[in-house]
Design a protein around this nucleic acid. Structure first.
Lengths: 204, 204
DNA sequence: AGCATAGGTTGTCAGAAGACAACCTAGTGA
DNA sequence: TCACTAGGTTGTCTTCTGACAACCTATGCT
């Protein structure tokens, strides 16, 4: 639908508006892309015609506050983090949710600091975390008692509680059907700070 | 800290910016309050000096995008709704959370349509809703199987599942220790669409 | 009495904004 | 070949913006 050129210009407007709280002027867009004011103005008009931008109250071309803000509070949702932490940045999130991290007591951090994992399986039902739930995670050093997203076998991510017993670190599921794990190398991808569950009509 | 006059002007700027995505000009503020442009300009400068507003990239006085947006996605959290539904609007929320209702499959609605209730007690632990959780509710007609915030005795709000048995509507707790309720007059304040739980470090 | 603060006024000005007109150049499909 | 679109150019114009200067008037504190 959008050409490449239009795409990058739209991105610029988005970022500018998120940072400056005010859409860029046509001349600023022009300066950024090394073209004339009219060139930029035409692009913005085209983007507006295609529904990506709107003419705001003061005549400027920009995004509605709703759209800008959606990009400010958004946190990525992953289905699983197959490889190590560095790969997280590169991996495409399954979904994006817009929520203020402060709800979970997390101050706005760098990207990659706060993220969500969609829970699969019933290993944490004892901690009232169900299949399909979204768990909020932060990147920080896990403490005993924390529920963490742990990387085992370097392939899959599982949610387990970190416990210390007889001086050893163990991963314990909150479900008696699962045995403890005593990994050689314990890699934590994040510590659970919250749970979000969508309740559908009339489910059990 | 702020005078009355400054308070209402700040409110106007906030609302204007949330609606228009762009801060009002000094003249628009002046027009709104029936004073001169310079009168408005002075107020805005004072508000900026007091840290409530900032001078934005294009010279306008307005709020940062972060602040505007916080007011867009926010939903009220109530501890309990003592009186009937109409009173909800008037009651002061216990807290405000910023979250996109779309996370729970709710399209942005009128104010009062989407709200949160802080759960007290253990009557819904069987449905994995714990004491201290935030449940997201929407105002809509409840269907059998829904968990609803029900008003009983016209004083307190309780969370119960709506079930139909032998043609009668019952309120059933998700905890065997509580008996079913068969109220004469069933008033639903909202239907649960989601749960938010803040998980603290190392809790059980 | 003296002085700072909140709130207000009128007039004027320079700068920056978007818009318009007119024209150029590839590429693409009928 | 013709028409349409994407992308680009240079001028020029009007309108709106925030800012400045200068001054007025309460209130309230010292």
């Amino acid at each position: 639908m959008l050409t490449e050129r239009q795409e990058v210009i739209l991105d610029f407007v988005r970022e500018y508006q998120a940072a400056q709280s005010v859409p860029p002027s046509t001349r600023e867009v022009a300066r950024q892309f090394g073209c004339s004011q009219q060139g930029a103005a035409k692009h913005l008009q085209v983007l507006a015609r295609k529904g990506q931008l709107a003419k705001l109250a003061d005549g400027k071309w920009g995004l509605q506050a709703r759209s800008v803000q959606a990009h400010l509070f958004e946190a990525p949702v992953y289905g699983a983090i197959p490889a190590g932490l560095p790969a997280m940045q590169e991996q495409e999130p399954e979904e994006i949710v817009a929520i203020d991290p402060a709800v979970f007591g997390v101050r706005q951090g760098r990207p990659g600091h706060f993220w969500f994992l969609r829970v699969t399986g019933d290993s944490m039902t004892g901690a009232n975390i169900l299949d399909g739930d979204l768990v909020a995670l932060v990147r920080r050093e896990p403490r005993p008692g924390d529920i963490i997203a742990a990387l085992v076998d370097e392939t899959t991510t599982t949610l387990k509680r970190l416990v210390h017993e007889r001086g050893r670190a163990l991963l314990r599921a909150a479900n008696p059907r699962y045995a403890d794990l005593a990994p050689q190398l314990l890699e934590s991808q994040g510590v659970v700070v919250g749970v979000i569950r969508r309740v559908r009509a009339g489910n059990a």
